[in-house]
Design a protein around this nucleic acid. Structure first.
Lengths: 182, 182
DNA sequence: CAATATAAATTAACGGCGTTAAGTTATATT
DNA sequence: AATATAACTTAACGCCGTTAATTTATATTG
């Protein structure tokens, strides 16, 4: 998994074959199939490792504040930055066409848990009457769309003449929060 | 191109091979290479066709109103709905990892033109002093992130228990516009 | 220690893929 | 009818994910 993760990060999912991974670890390709059902399974397990950390990170960072809106903001920031720091895994879990994500794909994954963690604080904001309305699911998914958008755009379209990264990220977060605030 | 487009739409980019396309049109696989440099070129040209229409659609729809904010809103809506109506092409142009998008990938493509068309109206909003600030590029890219987020999420994660489609789309657009308004 | 059971890894192969080089068939031009 | 050009195909290369059958290494016994 370490070797595979390194290669995915360095060369992107599509350019890493089972044969190359086997080569790198000094085993024959078929050996990998003794430990992972198939390529999708291997990738899936790597991502689970990674996104378990995302959930932790978000939880930790949110506890640094007690203003619900500030918690929300820092959670959104962490999500985006985590995605940009682990572009291969983010791509696999959130961007790539489903063939990669096997059945039960996203539901009951650590990706989902990370998402749930991040948006749990939306409930707090609603309780504190800080938002325009109180449809927690709708607000959460709206926020998710926004932060997923900027994350995937920055990962996938590095060539695009984007405004400075951090400024764009802040702008998205500011716009979203200002858009849902009461 | 017609056959290939149909197959991409029906089975997704990854599951369509040059051999299958050749089969469908009753030619040998190599014949395709007489008309297209490679698979990426074929796909690229199909997408150019499609996104030329998106630019037209946005322009047409925006002309139905003369309130700049309403123009903006209808352009955003059209972008999202177009993406959902042509998920394969949207995926190829905006979602898929770069290997598919050859060099010069997104810049100087009809995808870029569609984007430019959609956000040209941001300038009008700024001129009319309708927005919080006047950094046109920043606002445009922020909006793009938002609408790309919801579009790609809905395309890629059909299984996710999303709130009703149109409601989520409206929520994203409302949040974005309300977030940038003065 | 030798015999055997089990675990770990490999070899060989299948069918698929994108793509290229060389050759063939069909159509147009003289 | 002869030739030039366009359209298309055959055969192959080197990849890919994956499986079945087999071998090698390690542990467990008597």
């Amino acid at each position: 998994m370490d070797a595979a993760r390194e290669m995915f990060v360095a060369e992107g999912y599509a350019n890493v074959s089972m044969r190359k991974i086997a080569d790198k670890i000094g085993y024959s390709p078929t050996t990998i199939y003794l430990y992972f059902k198939d390529k999708s399974d291997l990738v899936h397990q790597i991502c689970e490792q990674t996104f378990a950390r995302l959930a932790q990170n978000i939880k930790a960072i949110q506890q640094l504040s007690d203003n619900p809106l500030e918690k929300l903001r820092s959670g959104l920031r962490e999500y985006i930055h985590f995605g940009l720091k682990h572009p291969s895994q983010y791509e696999i879990v959130f961007i790539s066409p489903l063939p990669i994500n096997v059945e039960g794909s996203f539901e009951d994954s650590n990706g989902k848990i990370a998402f749930d963690t991040m948006i749990s604080v939306v409930g707090e904001c609603v309780s504190a009457n800080l938002l325009k309305h109180n449809n927690i699911e709708l607000i959460s998914q709206t926020l998710w769309a926004g932060i997923h958008g900027v994350t995937s755009l920055l990962i996938q379209h590095g060539g695009f003449p984007f405004v400075e990264r951090e400024i764009l990220i802040d702008s998205v977060i500011d716009t979203l929060i200002s858009g849902i605030k009461a």
